[in-house]
Amino acid sequence: MTSTAARPDDVKSPGSVADPRRTSWPVLVVFLVPALAIYVGLTAYPAFRTIYDSFFTIEGLDATFVGLDNYRALMSDETFWVAVRNTFVWSFIAPVLDVSTGLLLALALYAGVPFARFLRVAWFTPVLLSYVVVAILWMWIYNYDWGILNEVLRAVGLGALASSWLGDPNLALGALIVTHAWKWAGFNMVVCLAAIHSLPREVLEAADLDNCGWGAKLRHVIVPMLRPTLLNLYILAFIGKMKIFDLVWIMTGGGPLWATETVSTYVYKRAFNWNTFDLGYPSAIAAVWFGVVCAAVVILNRVLASKDRLEY
């Protein structure tokens, strides 16, 4: 770093300065307390309440302690397991789609395609739309009779492939995943682009001088150097998908035949749609799911990121 290199004389001796990675408690308090206060007041308490509720059955204003009954019932709840399966499929597969599309788009912009400034905005517009609007638009796109997807298929002579995309249990989940990827690819692109821009230019130029093709450059230089960013994006997308709700709720409501039921839609159904004020059971689902996602994130971090943290 140039800044330190320019000033070695200022350092009297390394030992005389206090360890710069330590600081006094008041400073930490100033930095951390606002965040922790918000966390404790508005996140931890409701979360704790949820876990507490999961040991009760609640009828109106009366709560009855039932111990682990909700958890036991959950283990044999068929719908819950279907929801878990769907959510896992979505969470593990879809982020790959999101992140790789985002990376390719960012590379295209970085490589200097014409109209890059326009394209950067054009590709980002889906991110700006709310789930409600995205859901309505894509329900039209997937419409059997006049949706653009089927219209195009019919126009190119593939009319036999025209389907009721959201109405077929074999296709509905895939259709939702595509819609979700459509919305989020642009966000991944922006983050990747920022990361590419902050790569040391010399490395990329050196690769250019070596007459390194784009493929090789991508594999040997760009992807390894972007690893922390890509990983962050993957985990972020993963968590987003583990909680996925709005899009599914509006487009399919978990149907047909529970083919698109996710854990969050099931929690919501149990909490708001099952003609009961019982928060116990949905709280149990939320608590279990909280554990599962935490564990998954920790494992993902271990498996994928073992060496990244140490490098800096």
Binding site: G167, L257, N273, W274, N275
Partner: peptide, 22 residues
């Protein structure tokens, strides 16, 4: 109908059966 039964009605009798899926 209530709860799981209502949910099954919604998914099966309201949707899958008249859609010819089941």
């Amino acid at each position: 109908y209530r709860a799981k039964c209502a949910e099954t009605y919604t998914q099966v009798m309201n949707n899958a059966f008249p859609a010819g899926l089941i």
